[in-house]
Amino acid sequence: MKKAKKAALTGILAALALALGYLEFLIPVGIPGVPGVKPGFANIMIMAALYLLGAGEAAVISAARILLSWLLFGSFTSLVYSFCGGALSLAVMLALKKSKAFGFVGVSVGGAVAHNTAQITAASLMLGSGYAFYYLPVLLTAAAVTGTVNGLLLKAALPAAERIVKSNAK
C-alpha cells in the first residue's frame, strides 16, 4: 500500500471513529440504572485499522480520536481516563491478534474488557479510593456484550473494506 494512501485511509478511519463516538454522545444508549455504559462503536474503526493497516496506525487513530473528542466536548479528567482505556485496550487487542488464537469477537471483547478495567483503575487512582470498582461487574458484562456486537459488525464489514482497499491498490 502506498504511503499517501495509507495516510488517507488512516485519516478516514480516524474521522469515522470520531463520528461514531460523537454519535454515541448525541444518542446515549443506556440501560436504566447502569449509566456510563456505551457501545464503543469507535473501536470498530480502530480494529479495522489494526487489521488493514497496522498497530502504529491504529494507535494514531485511537490517540487522535481521544484528543479530538476531548478538544470538541471533553474535560481533562475524561482525557486521562480515555487515554488509559485507549492505550491498554489497544495493547490487549494487539496481543490477542498477534497470538492468532482469537477471531474478531475475541479481540474486540478483550479490547473492551481492557478499556473498561483501565478506566476503572484510573478512576480509582484519581479519586483515591477503590469504591469505583463497585462498577466493575457491570462494566465487564457490558464489555462482553458490546465487544461481541462490535466484533461481529467488523467481521461482516471487513471483507468489503478489504476488497475496496485492495481494488484501488493497483
Binding site: 492468532k100 488464537a101 482469537f102 477471531g103 474478531f104 469477537v105 475475541g106 471483547v109 478483550g110 474488557v113 463497585y134 466493575l136 461487574p137 457491570v138 465487564l140 458484562t141 464489555a143 462482553a144 465487544g147 461481541t148 466484533g151
Partner: peptide
Amino acid sequence: MKGNAKRDLILVASVVLVAAALFCAF
C-alpha cells in the same frame, strides 16, 4: 467451528462468569 471462534466463545463466557462472580462478591 474453527478454533478461533471456539476460543472467542470461551473468552466471552469467561468474562461473563468473572463478572457474575464479582457481582456476587460485591
